[in-house]
Nucleic acid binder design. Sequence first.
RNA 1: GCCCAUAUGGCUCAGGGGUAGAGCACUUCCUUGGUAAGGAAGAGGUCGUGAGUUCAAGUCUCACUAUGGGCUCCA
Length: 604
Amino acid sequence: MSENLIGYIDNLGNIIDTQSADENIEAQAIEYDNSPEALEIIRHSTAHLMAQAITELYTNAKFFVGPTVDEGFYYDFKVDEKIGEEDLKKIEKKMKELIKKKYKIEKYEITKEEAIEKFTNDDLKQAVLTRIPDEVVFIYKQGDFEDLCQGPHVPALRFLHNFKLTRVAGAYLGGDETKEMLTRIYGIAFADKESLKDYIKMMEEAKKRDHRKIGAEMELFMFNEESGAGLPFWMPKGSRLRYKLENILHKAHRKRGYEPVRGPEILKADMWRTSGHYACYGENMYLTTIDEQEYGIKPMNCIGHIQIFKQSGKSYRDLPLKYYEYGVVHRHEKSGVLHGLLRVREFTQDDAHIFCTPEQIASEVIDIVEFVDSVMKLFGFEYSMEVATKPQKAIGDDDVWELATQGLKDALNENNLPFTIDEGGGAFYGPKIDIKITDAIGRKWQCGTVQVDFNLPERFNVEYVGEDNDRHTPVMIHRAILGSFERFIGILTEHYAGEFPLFIAPTQIIFVPISESHVAYAKELKNQLIDLDIDCEIFDKNDSLNKRIRTAEKQRVPYVVIVGDEEVENNSVAIRDRRAKEQYNLSFDEFMVKLSQQLNEGKI
RNA sequence: GCCCAUAUGGCUCAGGGGUAGAGCACUUCCUUGGUAAGGAAGAGGUCGUGAGUUCAAGUCUCACUAUGGGCUCCA
């Protein structure tokens, strides 16, 4: 047996650890390395090692479950003391001490009844046992420490060296909000020291890209304690960026046959009763009373668009009819989930509603998915799609839900677009396709969404006259591509680490005049560039030239342009190009052509 | 909302029961410089808010607010 053997993988893909394998096993060996299977075993064992360390440090510790996750492992447990970040070092130290004892990890089998008896004083283990259907369970043992577990584990503690406990958090027992809160410690582990180092370095790099940090540095947006949590302020530079993004998208919508509309921010509560929001979404809505009438601040824009549709009679010839709005919505998110621009209480959706016939759904969904793809490609985003099905709180008949859900799947399947299923994740009025983008540290965020809705049009008596001269109810497709400007710009900031491409950069060019006599020339160029919708700044402060160049370079702008006697004389510019990472001279006209070309990259 | 942690000038941070420090940024002056920090002087904080303990609280305790890491939910 190889010294580096830590388990086997059978032809069904199951991992079998050395403790479980019989002598004549003919499965493929798993060596001690960074393969996904090896890491699964190593990380799970590290979770157990952590539990053992915690047991020694906190004698009253009780453990729930300790699985591996995408990014390492965690263990949920309960102790009488409070555990903070400080304690992680202490636990790590104890883990390293335990490794030196060179315990073997052994496995034995007992019946479930014996297990219930064995852990009779441990309510958490009892909770785990109720979740196990089998009659036989397994105990893994290292030194004095025993834990109920199905494995897999490494053969001995000597395989566990390169780990780090990353954070401490609270987690509900079994993820159930009504149950007690346990302590959760997350950690990561690898087969070699280098990989662990690389991982730690990567996390540090990711932290540098955090949109909250960059947003503050670049003065894009801010929050204010006195004004309230989750309510972002857009500072001048953030607004410039946002304006450009709005503009690009505005044109893209017009090209695709969408009409701009705008509804009120606040509507009578009865509207929300009709829509079903009051019943299904009420706890997330902000309500107020005006002249003894209850009103609700809109959490979604659909109602407004429906009223506009209904304002005049519509024929089948008008369909599909596409309305879009940069709709400001308010949603009462729980205080604990607010997160920079990625989760706020007021945000602006790039929202659109398509009124169409049931026959038009498939082609409309395809068009939307194409639109989504062109936006994602523009920014170089990787994204994934998920079809979300009927949630518990929902309105409408089951068969209508079934039809709409199948429609979405068909549209994706017909175009060979890969997707996963999010069971029960749909909106209360219909199924949806969610488009998810990954942020700098690998968290996935829902951005775009496509939702088919048979319910709202019926509730609001939306109608059109068909070819047969009868009245019919149209289908409504709700869709957003960015999702919200807030979240999208947050992710965009991390994606580019603040170095936005020219077509959306908040400041596109900084002019550095060599001396005061060149400021007039810089101003002249700046004014010409404003006509191209290009935002420029002139760094003419009373600082040394070197200092001003340094400051300008640190602003993450695409171009820093130096102008002095030579440039004034030749009507030219000396360019420091972020993209090319080099310096060169161009005539101003050539520069204008270059800029126009680069602005064109932002067209979709 | 729940668990844990944090809160000191615009920003990054030091200090710590006897009424506050640094660097950057800011202001003024000198310097007018050809590609990443020229020099000097100055201004700015009742140490998140409110209570309590104490002769004395930025410092200890509690509550609240906000932020961070999670749970749950979601764009």
